[in-house]
Structure formats: structure tokens, C-alpha cells
Design a protein around this nucleic acid. Sequence first.
RNA 1: CGGGGCGUAGCGCAGCCUGGUAGCGCACCUGCCUUGGGCGCAGGGGGUCGUAGGUUCAAAUCCUAUCGCCCCGACCA
Length: 589
Amino acid sequence: MHRWSELFIPTLREAPADAEVASHKFLVRSGYIRQLMAGVYSFLFLGNRSFRKIETIVREEMDKIGQEFFLPALHPLSLWEASSRWPLMGDNLFRLKDRKGTDLALGMTEEEVMTDIARKELRSYKQLPQIWYQIAPKFRDEPRPRSGLLRVRQFMMKDSYSFDIDGAGLEVSYRKHYDAYCRIFDRCGLKYMVVDADSGAMGGKESHEFMVRTPAGEDQIVSCDGCNYAANMEKAASKLEVVEDLWPEGDGKPLEVHTPGQKTIEDVAKFLGVSPKNKIKTLALMADEKNAKTGKTKSRAIVVLMRGDHQLNEAKLNAAVAVATRPMEEPEIEALFNSPAGYLGPVGIGWAKDLKQDVDHPVLLVDKALEGRTNLIAGANKKDYHLKNLTPGKDFQPTMYADLRSVTAGEACPNCGKALRIDTAVEIGHIFKLGYRYSESMGARVLDKNGKEVMPIMGCYGIGIERILTAAIEQSNDNDGFWLPASIAPFEIVVTPTNVKDETVFNAALDVARNLESAGFDVILDDRDERPGVKFKDADLVGIPFRVTVGKKVTEGTVEVVLRSTREMRDVTITAVVNYFQGALRAKA
RNA sequence: CGGGGCGUAGCGCAGCCUGGUAGCGCACCUGCCUUGGGCGCAGGGGGUCGUAGGUUCAAAUCCUAUCGCCCCGACCA
């Protein structure tokens, strides 16, 4: 029996000043965690209890589809240098040296180690499929840890890796994970959604993210209440309404118009009496690429054209050009356009014909929303002038068209046409179809039925354990604290005698707690010699979903059961308490 | 890495501008009191003022450097 008076549960009346989001404030106030340094936290008693319960759920569900391993956090740096991902991970990888001076790294993900095992051990299609997983610490030297446990430098991740003989097999492994993840998050009591995602630095094709909507999150997700469409911003699309193009003016050729002092899209549109939808927004960017051999940095201009009222999505841009970009500086703008900012446009510049082949010319990327449009208006590359009658493909030649636009809330769902919504969310899980990337680069091969050497196809799958706890708190809190689903709460029930010096009351509380415990419930008895208010406040704070208050009514044989989430309160006879919780807690589990 | 903010007792803060005794609330300890929502009274313990250097008779306070933490951005399976 856990007695509060004997435990270390350092609750605080006030949150630390540097905590901003609810989960961070409450995790500290409730004595779950304490900070050691930026992005690194210690878990105390209550926090660890909740953490272990989450891990147990993850482990139980993963054991149904795979096998648990335990891989080292300490890696030889050479493993990472061998990987083609090394440049991508960069400074996020923690590095250190051993006494002999050998370079080591702390593991931030384990594709390389898992694939290393696979290439050494897997020989035959008969050994496939395999799903290997672990629940282990990961280390990432984040440039900016934040929001308590939301983005940290050391965290616990369930990561798994599948090896299959072919795409159909991968499909099965992927689906198994998808289903297992749903079971895990369901059991953890999270309201989550699954979104189409970009595979980013992981490589590979298909990918889904498991997201929980909360303003504390760092990701933007687009979803539709009318159907099940959901995607993250990097991937989201929408149906655009048809825009009426302008009529050509004059002979239909590019026509210079005087627009003195009119620099912004809004200004120019108003000045010329047209909609921003008929304007071209010209974004001047630079990509700095370091040559691996010479170490020299070469810059290449990347100019992006968007519809006047549209916003560039940088993730889509990155995906399109595969390099990082930055805004051009004033001299660079002058050098390329021969014009001050505010009057930039695509006409009169020799654009690259191909992104990869034609590296000596600047790149002109045009958003798909402008494809097929006519008689648009853009800057004339001349101070105080714009050009009318511009038609892409005719008056200027794009290097390529690409989807570069950020979806905005209210646009039409690509599936059903209803208005899309955009929410911030936190990512709790992510699954990827990796394909052959690691099998190929690291040389994993097995023999197929015909004795032919083939590469196993891989998938990788991750769940952030801290984030399950964080998301659960973010979705269930009020001014006084938070409440966790019973499955992941440090205790299911707190038994609170209002006065421990009153023997009748205290003994009744002890009995109730013992009975609940022997019936299999996870109970803590708040036997502290404190005033009831203090104990109620603490009980409200620390995330326990049920409270049994044992007070004066014991003389009538009843106690109160309080549901933390709604504060709904009901009298239950002492003899019926166990029975009550068997209904309330075990029935749905 | 760019921009901003903050480091004074476990937590929240004042004091700094205008240099001279380090202070408040909560928490903690002792006693009394109280016992259904952080109760009351009395007494008490605890701080190299992030660190280093400088200016000064004298530095929490002024100057310089540095470290740390937080927020916005960049970045981020």
C-alpha cells in the first residue's frame, strides 16, 4: 500500500516562471519531473510510475507484432559517417571521444544499428518477415529544446524496424504497425488523428503521423470534418476555386504600367483595380551549397512565383529543390533583377531550363496555381513599374512548375470539397515505408526462393513515450491540475481521509484502500496529517482520475467517489466501493 | 545561428535607475490551535545576489567578459 506521507511527491503551489505550456507547468507542479538542464529532465516517483505504465502498454501491443531488442545508445561515429544520412543529421548528433580518442556518438535513431544486424545475420527469405523493436533512450542535440517534455534532448522512444522480402510484405508490416499504434494510443486514452505525412530526412515513400491536436504542439495539420482527409502542412493539398483571368490589354504583349511607390501586392492590386489573385508574387531566394570536395560555397538564385494571395510553404519548396534556401540580400537582388525589391518579376531573365542539368542559370519555380493562368501582373524589374499581360510559358519560361503553396483554413477539401481546418498538433508517432535505402547502402541481402540475391525492404516506426504523457496532459487539464486516463495514471485512485486523527475516519479509509488494492486497483492513501483542503488540492493536481473521500459520512457507512475530469461526486456505501470501481474502471478496459 | 527576456532562499518575486544593513509571499522546522477546498497565532532555520574580472573607501546595484535558462524565428524521423 502506497502511503502519501511516506512518499516523495514535491507538489508546488506555483509553476516555475519559465514554464509556458500547460503540460510543462503541471508536470513540474505535480512533482512528476524536475529539470536537469535545457531539454533534459529527471522523472521523479509519480512521473516514473506514469511513464512505466505507458511503456508497458506500448510493450504489450508491440509484443503482439514484433520482438523486443535492446540496442546500445553508444555508437561508433564511423557508423554514422558510413551512412548517407550523416550530412542531414549534422549537429543534432551528440559526439564524444573515448579514452583512446575514438570518435563516438549517442544514438538518435537506430536504422544503422538495426540494418547492421540484419546484414550480418539475415541470409534467407525464410527468415523474413522480421519486426524488431526496442524502447530505449535517444539523444538529439536540438538547437532549441522547448515546452518541457515536448521537445527534449534525451527522450525515450519506441522504435521498430521491419524487414520483408517484397513490397507486399512491407505493406503487411506497415499495416500491423498502423493497427498496433491505434491500439496503443486508444489504450492510452488519447484523442489522436492519423495524417498523411512527408517522409523528410528518413527517405522512403509512404508515411503517416499520429497527431494529437493541442495548441502546445509544433506541427500544423490540415484536416476535414466532412470526410477523413488529414495531412500535415508539408503534404496537404486543397481544391482551388477557378479564378477569372484578366482580358489582355493593348496588343496582348507584356505592357509596362507606371505604379509609382506601389510595392506590396495589396497596394499594386488596389492601384490597378484588380484582385491579388491576378497578381504574381515574386520571391527571391538563394540556395547556398557547399561543395564537399573543395569546401567552397556556391550560391544559386531560386526565384519562386506564387499567386498574389498565396503563401509559400517552405517544406514543399525544400522538397522541390532539395536544398535549404534563404531570402536574397539586397545586393543579390540588384545583381539578378537589376531592380529594387518591390518591382521584381520573371521577365527578361535567362532562367535555367532544368533544375539539375542547367546549374549555371537561376531557377524559376512557379506554383501550380499559376499554371494555365493568363494575363497576370508582375513587377517589371524597374523601379515604379509593373507588367501586365503576363502568361507563364509564353512571356517567361519556368524551370519547373511545383506545388509550393501552403493550404489555408477554409479552402476546399481535395476529397469532398468541404472547408478544411488547420490545427496545431503534437506528433506522438510516425511510421515510414523506408524501402531499400538502408538495405542498399549498407549491403543487406538475402536469397529468395530462386536462390537469387535480393535486398530486404524496410520500414521504420517510432513512438515518443514522453509525448504520450505530454499530449494526455495537454488534452485534459484545468486551472487546478490535470487528469490522466486510468491506464497511464500513476495511481488509479487516491483515497483521502479528511482527518487522519479521527480514528473512525482513518480506519475506514485504510479499509477502503486495502480492499481496493486487493481487488487489483492501483491505490494511494493520502494519510498525511494535513487539512482536507491541502489534500484535495494535491489530489486535483497530480493526474489521478478518481478520488475516494472518506469523511464524516463513514458513520453512515458511505464515502464519496469523485471523478476528477468532471468533478462529478457521488456517495457510495463502503461495502460497494470495490464493486463500483470494477464497473467504472475495469468494465471498459 | 539571428532577435528578445531573465538569473537575488526550494518556488514566485521586490530591491538595481540614484552604490553603503539583502527583503516579501509561499514552502520548510518548533509549539499551540484547527480539520470538507492551499486555516490561524507565536517563534525559528535557510541566500558566495549565476560566474570571473574591473571601477570604488564601499558593488546585488556601475562597467566588461563569460556561463546558464526561457520565449520568437531558423532548424527539427
